[in-house]
Design a protein around this nucleic acid. Structure first.
Lengths: 203, 203
DNA sequence: TTTTTGACTTTTTTAGTTTACGGGTCAAAA
DNA sequence: TTTTGACCCGTAAACTAAAAAAGTCAAAAA
């Protein structure tokens, strides 16, 4: 037996899968390859995960969880809202750099109900966090906004949207973000954050 | 002869092409169909346009020109910057509604040098217009910005980016904008404009 | 001389077929 | 309870042939 118990084996599988995913991309990784890495049979994987998509989702959740925790810790810090936003941008930047080879978009692109559910819950969690930050600002008298929820969503969408700036059309070929373009996007996110914060500040 | 002179014939072809493009989409329109509509031979079209792409580009330029003129007239009006931005959003909205069936993205998606050139010049023209608006605001003491060019580009990218909000991944299938989602994007653009303008206002 | 055209060639799309690979199952073994 | 080899099966890539559309040109028409 490879592991002491079921959970540990699941964990080992997730680690092996993540390693492959980060090296070759999720879509180019076969169940056989993961099994071979673990010196076990493919059938074993199916004992722990009902199918390949379940494995994808589990990997996704695993890395997503730590990603979110980092942000939420940042969000609770007792610093200016603008500083919080900037720090969150930095965390996201790290995350993208770290997991760029993972081809997350290919996993996310499938329109299955499970994935859609995950995406929705991620959005919700992100929205909650951002709303909380803004509400904190309102409570402290820093901000003057009517509808913190709408403002949070707008901020979120604007940040995400900047990633697509410059491509006036839909890129079916994934634009492998060259260092330069990537840095520019981050710089724009920071600048927009600055303006946005000023724009909702009480005066 | 169908037309008095060469320019008039070119014009007639462009009109026929645009009609077809708007009805069936650019990619589903053949040169033969356009020729048949005009009761002329396909070979005639090639006398006026070197190839199909040249026809695409010409149609693009034609509608793009009027589109830009409308905006530039708006940009020169003597009203508040915020009002100008809002009016430009409305013009763009009309334009998208009007030409949505044209499948512009399919034309724009090809990476040929000619198209890229057009896109670059469009971006430049848009940048110039927005920069001018902001500079006007700076001159009148309404705005306080260091680098109007950078701010204009940021505003432009943020507006464009909002179109992609909510799709956390790259949609290879073109999202035919349902009325509802479309209206939401426009609303967000207006709201972000409001905040953005406040954010760069002198205080 | 300028413009148009029918007949032609070349290129691209599409639809149909085959094949190989990877996802997934299961009864038996450990 | 966990693991496995052998097997099945659906699908996506690879190939192919046929159709359609793009593009050319010499000769006719204006």
């Amino acid at each position: 037996m490879l592991a002491e118990n079921k959970d540990e084996m699941r964990e080992k599988i997730l680690e092996a899968a993540l390693k492959r995913f980060m090296h070759y991309g999720a879509s180019k990784t076969t169940m056989n390859e993961i099994a071979d890495d673990l010196r076990c049979s493919k059938a074993s994987l199916y004992y722990y995960f009902s199918d390949k998509k379940a494995l994808h989702n589990a990997v996704l959740m695993k890395i997503g969880e730590t990603f979110f925790e980092e942000q939420e810790i940042e969000a609770d810090k007792d610093i200016s809202s603008e500083q919080i936003f900037t720090n969150i941008i930095a965390i996201k930047k790290q995350f993208v750099e770290r997991y760029s080879r993972l081809e997350l978009f290919k996993i996310l692109n499938d329109k299955s109900e499970e994935i859609q559910q995950i995406i929705r819950s991620v959005h919700e969690r992100e929205a909650k966090m951002l709303t909380k930050i803004i509400e904190k600002g309102v409570a402290s008298g820093e901000f003057d906004v009517d509808d913190p929820v709408a403002i949070a969503q707008l901020y979120r969408d604007a940040m995400e949207g900047l990633r697509f700036a410059g491509m006036s059309c839909l890129p079916e070929t994934i634009p492998d973000l060259d260092k330069e373009a990537f840095e520019k996007i981050v710089a724009q996110q920071k600048l927009l954050t600055e303006i946005f914060v000023r724009g909702i500040k009480k005066r």
